[in-house]
Structures are given as C-alpha cells and as structure tokens.
Design a protein around this nucleic acid. Structure first.
Length: 570
DNA sequence: TGTCCTTTGAAGTGT
DNA sequence: ACACTTCAAAGGACA
C-alpha cells in the first residue's frame, strides 16, 4: 500500500537522521514508498481505463465479483487524479509544502489544485472514489478492514512510530490530518466509516446517522445532520484543531484563502458567540472541532468562573473552550513525541518534553523556521476562525500554579534561581546526560562519555534562533549560512532571546557556579527519569567546541553534579 | 479525579 | 517597556 508518508519526512531529514536510530532502512523505505505511490497512480490510471472498458463489456457476474466501485464522474475524477498526481510530483520535487506536523500525509492540499474536485466545499464522490482507490487503508479503508474493527494492524503500520497518522485535522486545511496519534485500526474514526454506496447509483452516499461510526457521536441536536463530506479526513480520537465550517469549506485553505467576504462569513459562523450553537464542541456535522473543547467533553477544573449557578453558569458551560493555537514548539512536539517515545522507554511526558526541548534547540534554523511558519499559519487561521477569541478567554481556566510555585521559589531566594538557570543551561548543553537513577530524587547531570557523544552527526549548534516575531522573515532567508563553530558554541538558552554577542561564547559555563549555594539545596526533578532509558542519541551531539569546552570543564562538572530542574527540594 | 511535571512560544496581565 | 503569568500538548505519577 502506498503510504502517504512516502518521502514526506524528508523535510525533516536532518532531524530524522539525528534521532532515527531505530529504523536504519527508513530512508530506503521512503524512497520505495514514493515509487510505490507512483505505481499506485499508474494503477489508478489503469483501473480507470479498465473500468471504462468493462463498463460496456463486463458481465454481471464480473461486476459482482469486483469490488463495488462507484462509477466515477470521469471529469471530476480525472481532476482529482490530476491533482494528486501533481501533488505527488511536487512532493517528489521537494517543492511541495510538506507539513512537518502531519507526516501521515505527504503534502498539504494546494488550494488552486484542490478546488476542482471540491464541489461546494465537499469532496466530490468521484474524487473520493479516487482517494478511496489510491489510499484505501488510509483515508477510506476497505470495507473489509472496517467490518472488523479489531482487525490486526497492517504490517506496515505495526511500527511503533506511526506511519499513517490520523487523529487531527490539519488546522490549515481540512484535508490534512492534524495529529500524530497512532493510527489505530481498532478505532476507526467516523471518516473511516465504510463507504456506503447507493445500491441504485453506485455512488457513495452519506450514511445515515445510525450507520455512522460512534467515534463522532452526534449530539441530540445533530441527529439528522450529516457528516461533513470531508469527514474522512477528520481524525479519530484526537482533537483536531480547527473545524470545517458549516456547509463545508469551499477552499482547502479556508482561512488563508478567504477573501474579506468569506472571512466575515466564516467569522460569523465561527465566532465564539455562535459556536455554542454546537454544544459538545461538535461541528454541525457532528465532527468535533479541533480547537473547541466542549465543557461536556473536557471539563476544565476551574472552568466554572461564574460564582453562582444559574443561567450564567449554564451559558458558561455551553461556551466551548477554544484552545490556543499551537506554537512552533508545540507543533514540533506534537510531531516528534511519538518518535521519541518509540525510541526510548520513556513514557513520561515531562521527560519526553525535556528531550524534545533539547532537540528543538538542536534543530537548524531552517528546520525551526518551518515550524515557526506553520505556527504562524496556525495563528492566522485561528484568528480568522475565531476573530473574537483571545487567549485571555482561557485565562483562569486552569489552576494558577505558576503563581504558587513562584511564591514557593521566591522563598528559596534568588541565588537558587540563578543557579537553577545555570544548571539548566548546562543541562541543555550537549555535554551532559542526566542521570536519573530510578529512585533518585536528585538527578545528576553527568558527563556523557565522549565516545557516546560523537557518534551522532554534529547537527547541534545550540540554535539561538530567536522565535521570530515574523517567522516569515526567517523563512525569507532560509539559506542562512551554516552555523559556524562559534554559533554552535552558543549556549542553549532558556529563552529564545539572542545572547549578547559580547558575552562569552558559553556564558552559562562562565558563571560562578560555586557561588550559587545550590549545593546545599540542589533543585531537583520531582520525578526522576531513568537514565538507562535515555538512548545516547537522544542527547544532542557535541560540536568540537563542545568537546573542547567539556574538556576544560570536565573536572568541575564531574565533581559537581548539577541538577536539572529549578524547583526547590522543598 | 484532578493536578503536577516539563518543554517553548505566544499572548495576556501587571508594574 | 519590561517582567511575569498563563496556556497550549502529552501522559505518567501522585495526592
């Protein structure tokens, strides 16, 4: 089966190279998968030809033996085929916008290309048929696969790292999944519901609500409403980010392609003031909105801001929780988490996030810029979908623990904070691995043996990429010169603000660590991370500068275990 | 069951 | 203007 990831991860090649020590033949597989995808395209062409031939000549028995296929509307069918052919070509040319966030799909829809087969915001039956044929297991699984929802995972999907990922709808286009949740054939989403063919016309019809998958249960008010024609692209268990407007997008990039009138239209439709008409965070079609978490689904602990029960409270409960758009790092985490989890035995998100944080810093500017750009588009789309929404709306819906923590930490004094900062800087440097012995409440930063450190490509340059206020600016000059050694030597900062050029190349290391007084009250990680579960490759490789610096600081750091987390032992 | 942890970045609030 | 706070995701751990 062609897998849509074919080559799709190449845009993350450097990163893949750094962290993918699990499947050495992955690249080869991707190449072959691309070829396979092309071959499938040819198969489709052949099938089209055969089908047209058979339409006039095949017997009834042959028809019944064949998998029932809706008779394609040749024109739109052809358009869809052309689109995907073009998409595939662009993907292979490397010029296609491949979402790092949605590796399950090799490309993002190109509006002007996609529009031909988008009829009134819906995927035309012919286009759908095409997709069904092309990627039967991915988007429109075979009926056989769906008859038994417990059917075993296909071999090509058995890898812990999901090859095909459903779960979230792409925020930028309803045609893209939005999650790296593992594809689970045991939980086919509504969009994977078997194609229900009209026995008379042979054209896929909208299933009756009773035929729909229970994964997108229709609210009582939604009974009778039909699933969105693009529902097959809406993910399963996850939380897709942004919804499909009522009536469907007329454009795969609704937010980006909307003109003023459309924008206002969508705004009126998606204004938080209107959204409550669809309680439970479900789209009119019954598809949950990605960025909306209904109180009925996700109950915010402190979501009840109204002091007294009553209409106000009810109104508040009805108001869906529109989540913040994901920032670049969140997008990166979302994509890479599964990979990291698959590469090590860690399951704890806190530990995973630490690794991801370091990897994020080890990304090149170009790689990071992709995520910044994606995040920018996320925000853009979000702001267009929810023009009245503000991050403030979500304030106070979670426990304000930061404030409490700060109150605690301030009691520890500023010295501790400084040292903690230093510690994190040092931890962030690729010289050290964190030794979290199983029950050690005070994990140490240890020197990572050199031979373990240098086996990875020196992709770490301690990117000091400032989170660009205008990520497009970063993209505007993606061909920035390769980081020099001095650049690589820049410390991994807690913040993204650029270090003063006049400062030491490793200011964090030059700080008077000994004066911190942290030794007496070393900060600790509240929950230890088993060091043995950390694969060496999870740590950023050192540059020559790092090794040199390491050499000079070796004794100090070895004799002075440094803690990772800034939280006080108390 | 709810909160914490942990990361970065965006956006909010407060001074 | 700047510092600080909150929340986005994730899922195990913990109270």
């Amino acid at each position: 089966m062609p897998q849509l990831n074919g080559g799709g991860g190449d845009d993350l090649g450097a990163n893949d190279e750094m962290i993918s020590f699990k499947d050495e033949g992955e690249q080869e597989e991707k190449i072959s998968e691309n070829v396979s995808a092309e071959r499938d395209l040819d198969d489709v062409k052949s099938s089209l030809v055969n089908e047209s031939e058979n339409n006039s000549s095949s017997s009834d028995s042959e028809q019944t033996e064949r998998r029932p296929q809706p008779r394609p509307d040749t024109e739109s069918y052809e358009k869809a085929r052309e689109y995907f052919s073009e998409a595939l070509r662009r993907q292979q040319d490397g010029g296609f916008f491949k979402s790092p966030h949605y590796p399950g799909y090799p490309f993002l829809m190109i509006p002007d290309l996609a529009s031909p087969y988008l009829s009134n915001g819906a995927l035309s039956p012919s286009a759908r048929t095409y997709l069904q044929m092309k990627w039967p297991l991915l988007d429109v699984p075979s009926s056989a696969a769906l008859k038994d929802s417990r059917s075993p995972t296909p071999g090509h999907l058995s890898n812990k790292v999901p090859v095909v990922q459903h779960a979230h709808m792409h925020p930028l286009t309803p045609l893209i999944t939005y999650s790296n949740d593992h594809f689970s054939p045991t939980t086919p989403p509504a969009h994977l519901s078997p194609e229900i063919l009209d026995p008379k016309t042979g054209i896929p019809r909208t299933p009756h609500p009773s035929e729909l998958s229970p994964y997108y249960p229709l609210s009582p008010g939604a009974v009778g409403q039909i699933p969105h024609p693009l529902g097959w692209l809406v993910p399963q268990q996850g939380q897709p980010m942004y919804s499909i407007p009522p009536g469907g997008f007329r454009h795969p990039y609704p937010a980006l392609a909307m003109n003023a009138s459309m924008s206002s239209l969508v705004s009126s439709r998606f204004s938080p003031h209107v959204v409550p008409h669809h309680p439970h965070g479900l789209h009119q079609t019954g598809i949950p909105h990605p960025a909306i978490v209904s109180p009925a689904i996700k109950q915010e602990p402190n979501g009840d801001l109204s002091p007294s029960p009553g209409p106000a409270k009810k109104e508040d409960e009805k108001k869906p929780h529109i989540k913040k758009p994901l920032n670049a790092f969140m997008l990166y985490m979302k994509e890479m988490r599964a990979k990291v989890v698959a590469e090590c035995t860690l399951k704890e998100s806190a530990a995973i996030n630490q690794i991801l944080g370091r990897r994020w810093h080890s990304l090149s500017r170009e790689e990071q810029a992709k995520y910044y750009e994606l995040a920018r588009k996320e925000r853009q789309l979000h702001s267009q979908l929810y023009p009245g929404w503000s991050a403030r709306d979500n304030y106070g819906k979670r426990k304000k623990r930061k404030r409490d923590n700060k109150a605690d930490s301030t009691a520890e004094g500023e010295g501790l904070f400084l040292v903690s900062l230093i510690n994190v800087h040092i931890y962030s440097s690729p010289f050290f691995a964190v030794d979290f012995s199983a029950r050690n409440k005070k994990p140490c930063v240890q020197y990572l043996p050199q031979e373990k450190m240098i086996d990875s490509p020196a992709s770490s340059h301690g990117s000091m990429l400032d989170s660009p206020a205008t990520p497009s600016a970063a993209l505007a000059s993606p061909a920035a010169p390769a980081p020099t050694h001095s650049e690589q030597a820049q410390p991994l900062s807690l913040t993204t603000k650029p270090e003063p050029s006049s400062s030491s190349s490793h200011p964090s290391l030059s700080l008077p660590i000994g004066s911190s007084g942290s030794q007496s009250t070393p900060p600790l990680l509240s929950r230890p991370i088993p060091f043995t579960s950390l694969h060496p490759s999870l740590l950023s490789p050192p540059s020559p500068f790092h090794q040199a610096a390491l050499h000079s600081h070796h004794a100090l750091f070895q004799s002075q275990p440094l803690s990772l987390v800034t939280k006080s032992a108390d």
